[in-house]
Design a protein around this nucleic acid. Structure first.
Lengths: 371, 371
DNA sequence: TTGTAAGCGTTATCAC
DNA sequence: GTGATAACGCTTACAA
């Protein structure tokens, strides 16, 4: 009924010759193979080949299935996921945003994510924002453009106000396109979330120190541009108030989440206040503080106790094995993968709440003569 | 001349009504926008819109360009990179294979890669193989399927023979599709490469020890299933021969590239031989060795010196600040990005050769009374 | 300088 | 159970 036309049709096809049939006779093992090659070799239609290759539920006879499979095998055919994604609107990719992928804290979260996602055939883009609002927004846009099925915020959000607004806009747009957002950090964004109570972790650590007789404890805080820094600091100040400890701004110094920053902050505390213990908002800073103390000739923990937060691998091997609060980074990533998968499946996963745990090592001593 | 047909055309279009014109009148800010929406809003064809959005060199009048740009802006249009990739055969993505992304050694390489690639608008997939041949091959296949423009092998290849063969096949296939392979490790695969001479690094470290008077030095090796372990070990054995040091299989113990493995290996060396120094094939193992030594009551470096390899961040902060050979991981990644970009541009980049450097800290002593 | 439409490699909707 | 073919959103000849 159709092919009554001669010559060129309005849509540009020559009438009786399928332009889909390539001229090349034998192109085995020479270039990239598409479904069409597989179909040809198997002597079936592209549709049928697609059905077997994509694991469609559409019925295909066993015989045909085998022919297609063997053809695909002969050509070592690998379906083009981009093409598939274009029509299914599912790319099987996830983007994760961290502050710095060389930081084991994030490395472990990403590892957890990867372990949970690999078997479900999802691939992971990683992006280090370097805490730069512009860069982070850039990455979010790029992920969107690459049609990731989900974006994971493993990095705490930044406190920059214009960033907040822009991120809200971008994420709303991403969600409109069906994108899922998972949050694994202290963040302004909503979404399926793995919660770790940073506030309480610090407060508990202070409580632990109080239990060991400390009444004058200093705090080395993270960089103010990170939301998590504020949360952890709040844990400290509320605990100080609650326990009625010595207080005042001079008990707090900014260590910027680095070893050297921690050392400098410790030096400052040494000058300003007379403490028996210090809690650092991160292990890295705690190690810096210990080094500073040791270098200044004050013994740890005999004269001053030092407590950290995170329990990174280094913690155990520092100058003095560090007593710290474990943040279950790998588990955060792993559970993140689970709720991500659930959300992608259209479910509404419950938030996961992970608890912390004090790892007692040798950097905290009991004060014999309190006060 | 075309629209003389009535009714359904062979290609399925109703004759006079462009099926490309959607019914919906106002779909602002509601769903994902495509180029078509932008073109419509700007009152131009999709082709023209594409030209301005993709930065094509095809001429477009300033006026039109502005109209398109403002339309895109109004719709906050973000081009679909998947669709673009499908036609251009360039996905602007790169896949990197590491052993474990939570290991800072690889984290830093990935960071270097990312820093070099981000500005060129390439996104990074990361994959941790866990040194599992099956998993690694799986990832390579997946990267291929996702049409990455390049695959970076940051992880040393495995010594498993069937893996070698399979990887050769897969990589050949990937290259046929125009894929670029970059090698940043000791690897069986060829390709643009950043070289770091692991063999020589170890040999130099032994030379350094000899210069400090050591004549009996032990070696803690990496896991035999990694190519790099063999390369580093070769550096040790040739140096031992060259300098005429005490030798024998009992001077070598396998530490598996872990802290605990390093400790166990040290324990074994302690039983089997009488050495004045030990070089470990990685800092992690060196730290384990130091801990084992200290726990056994032997002082470092007074009784036994310990030297590492890598200079990971921990190295400086261990029980005794570790003397080690720096492997410039970040630079490896950074240079990797450069040659990757060159290769992608169709050039044939020269291999980059990076040299090592001894970082003298406190874990190596001079032997006063050489053996 | 602009527009038309073919085509990238899939899946999905129909018809048979 | 199988096959045509429209469609996904884009780029790119080719025409005008």
């Amino acid at each position: 009924m159709a092919n009554v036309f001669k010559g060129k049709l309005p849509c540009g096809y020559p009438a009786s010759v399928s332009s889909k049939t390539p001229i090349s006779s034998s192109n085995e093992g020479e270039a990239a193979h598409s479904l069409r090659h597989v179909a040809q070799l198997a002597g079936v239609s592209v549709a049928t080949a697609s059905r077997v290759m994509s694991g469609s539920s559409h019925p295909v006879s066993t015989k045909t299935r085998e022919r297609v499979l063997s053809a695909a095998d002969r050509l070592s055919f690998e379906p083009n996921r981009l093409a598939r994604a274009l029509v299914t609107a599912k790319s099987q990719t996830v983007g994760v945003i961290v502050h710095d992928i060389s930081d084991p804290y994030f490395g472990e979260i990403v590892k957890g994510l990867e372990d949970g996602l690999h078997s479900e055939d999802y691939r992971l883009f990683v992006a280090s924002s370097d805490r730069d609002p512009v860069k982070e927004l850039d990455y979010v846009r790029a992920f969107h453009a690459h049609q990731v099925d989900a974006i994971v915020f493993a990095a705490s959000s930044l406190t920059d106000p214009s960033y907040a607004e822009a991120l809200e806009t971008l994420s709303a747009r991403f969600r409109v396109r069906g994108g899922v957002i998972v949050v694994l950090s202290d963040h302004l964004l909503e979404g399926p979330r793995v919660r770790f109570d940073n506030r309480r972790a610090v407060a508990d650590m202070v409580g632990y120190l109080v239990g060991r007789g400390h009444r004058r404890v200093g705090y080395i805080s993270g960089p103010p541009e990170l939301l998590v820094s504020g949360v952890r600091l709040a844990g400290f100040t509320t605990a100080v108030a609650e326990f009625g400890l010595a207080t005042g701004p001079e008990y707090i110094a900014n260590g910027g989440f680095t070893v050297t920053g921690g050392g400098a902050a410790m030096g400052q505390l040494l000058e300003d206040v007379d403490v028996t213990a210090v809690v650092a908002a991160s292990d890295l800073m705690a190690i810096g503080a210990m080094r500073q103390l040791l270098a200044s000739g004050v013994s740890v923990p005999e004269e001053i106790s030092v407590a950290g937060l995170d329990d990174i691998p280094i913690a155990e091997y520092g100058p003095v094995p560090l007593t710290t609060m474990r943040v279950p980074t790998y588990e955060i990533g792993r559970h993140g993968a689970s709720i991500l998968l659930e959300a992608l499946a259209g479910e509404t996963p419950d938030d996961v709440v992970l608890s912390s745990q004090i790892i007692e090592r040798e950097s905290v001593a009991t004060v014999e003569t309190p006060g």
